[in-house]
Design a protein around this nucleic acid. Structure first.
Lengths: 329, 329
DNA sequence: AAGTAATGTGGAATCGATACCACACGAAGA
DNA sequence: TCTTCGTGTGGTATCGATTCCACATTACTT
């Protein structure tokens, strides 16, 4: 592996001159430049990013912390981030928390030790330790998915989208509406979406039975089980079910089909996520499009703004959404 | 951002001693160790990975080059890789070629400049430039998905799985079997899978009409269009269709359902990939499970072996697969 | 009592780049 | 003719860690 020193020797110039050619700054004669360029090519010289980072304090890398790598949402978001950052000469360093809150902090430190220029966190919780770690960080940071106090955040409009879904059911005449959520420790998905549902019900003076509200854990299976609970335990059975993720909705759909409960005539169904799946199940699932790629892109733009020093104050951005009504309602 | 120097000053020892404590080598008195540990904690010292890499020539990072980030296959594979590498103290640096062959080479150089300890490439093509670049590389390298000459490769058994799928159709009495493939520039998915199909047909003396073979481009839409071609153009219509990816199979399914062609009684359908989708469409799609996570894990293990110097010669590993028959056949 | 081994610590070189500063040289202006 | 400027180049300190080597101590052998 040749270094800048070797190139300099070969070209018969000093390291400084090689550096000048490579970075295109300072005065270099045409002749010297040519010799350097040639030497670089001949030796297959690739500059060490580490040495450069060490000296310049810029790595050109943005760390991205995901709850899980292999979800459709995550990969769409990453796609959006990657596109935007790559266009601006940055690379991504991905890490994965496997949904463990303590790993979020651990990964932030890991990324910091790698001198990333900024960090994007796809947040799933909002605990105090996390907020403190971020506050101490002193590098550009953007959270996506949860509103973190004191941190630039990009969030989906969980409350209003859930509200709209519920109202959409109501406007079609449904009065008993079941809800499949997740634990409220996930503020965005667990708390806000449930709140949207509850407030929409309240607005239309519809009572909510406790037994209509079930918790899942994002998986198909938990959606299936939740639907089973809803349809087998409830005294008054729901005529519509709102699951806060497509996967759980499709799990629920599985239960309903298995038990010959027609969708949508007996039970209407709504999810959130606009997954590929939602389009291809039978009947096609109504869902909410959160524009994940745009979200990733927007998040990346915010990081870039901080990087170029354009903004300092913490921003909060709430994203658009769109209800997609398909044959499941 | 405190450095080792600051810690040393605070603890009243030399940088050397701090380094010894951190890396747990060399003699350090209990007393000195305690002071150092305390200083580290108080100052929130995080060692610079770059300085360390520069000195030790080990970064603890493995580069992973993906054709596209947001596919189910890619994210499963990455999951497998990540799990295995993280358990061994390595991190992943992800890059993305957006399916452009020239970006594969570009990304290899980029990763090399970042001193990655090894590179995993989810390959989609096998051009000469790529092979040369890899040969020059001098760091551990494993290709996944395509067999590259002179390179340790982990490959799916594209030929035999396609052969088996085709024979499975034949054993159920199908004689006209349509095929939805991709261009042969993708040797594994385009060439080998088609070859498996052709050879299985030949083995059973079944003629193959040219019009039964359609090319798609991995998308739902291309599967839809290919099915349309098959059913509308062919003189002798297929009674079974084998699409080399689940997405295209599901695109085809969309066409068939839209045109009231019953699956499986009128046309049986098989895909490859064992995607989440395949399980949840109606009817559930028969498919081939390539165990992507295991593939990722195996690939990571090979990199680790090279890293620890256990093996030097290039290995070729062919993975297992499993046919999953569901109601689409 | 003297020599050797074990333990503990620090100085300084090093990794590969960048960038400040000094300096050389020819051309233009005073 | 002497400054002064623009251009071109190299020396050297620096970034933050590791590691070799040298040098103290202290402990253990004979």
């Amino acid at each position: 592996m040749p270094t800048i020193k070797d190139v300099a020797k070969r070209a018969g110039v000093s390291r400084t001159t090689v550096s000048r050619v490579l970075n295109d700054n300072g005065y270099v004669s045409h002749e010297a430049r040519t010799r350097v360029v040639e030497a670089v090519k001949e030796m297959g010289y690739i500059p060490s990013a580490h040495a450069k980072t060490m000296r310049t304090k810029r790595s050109g890398v943005i760390g991205v912390i995901l709850p899980r790598i292999s979800t459709e949402t995550a990969s769409r978001v990453v796609n959006g981030i990657e596109e935007e950052l790559a266009a601006n000469g940055y690379q991504i360093l991905l890490t994965n928390t496997q949904l463990k809150p303590e790993k979020e902090i651990q990964n932030i430190k890991l990324l910091k030790s790698r001198q990333v220029d900024g960090i994007i966190l796809l947040a799933t919780n909002r605990n105090q330790d996390l907020l403190e770690t971020i506050a101490d960080l002193s590098i550009p940071f953007v959270a996506l998915g949860q509103e973190l106090t004191g941190v630039t955040s990009v969030v989906y409009d969980d409350y209003h989208s859930a509200f709209d879904v519920t109202e959409s059911f109501i406007s079609e005449g449904h009065q008993q509406i079941g809800f499949i959520g997740v634990p409220e420790t996930d503020h965005a998905v667990g708390f806000l979406r449930k709140q949207g549902y509850l407030d929409a019900m309240a607005k239309h003076n519809l009572p909510v039975k406790e037994e209509w509200i079930q918790d899942g854990n994002f998986s198909f299976e938990s959606g299936y089980q939740a639907a089973k609970q809803l349809m087998e335990q409830a005294q008054v059975k729901p005529t519509a079910v709102f699951a806060v993720t497509d996967r759980m909705a499709i799990g629920a759909l599985g239960y309903l089909k298995e038990n010959q409960i027609n969708v949508p005539s007996e039970v209407a169904l709504f999810g959130i996520g606009a997954s590929d799946l939602s389009k291809h199940v039978t009947p096609p699932l109504s869902t909410v499009d959160y524009f994940n790629e745009d979200a990733g892109q927007k998040t990346a733009q915010l990081i870039l703004e901080q990087l170029t020093g354009k903004i300092i104050e913490k921003e909060k951005i709430k994203l658009n959404y769109r209800l997609i009504k398909r044959d499941s309602v």
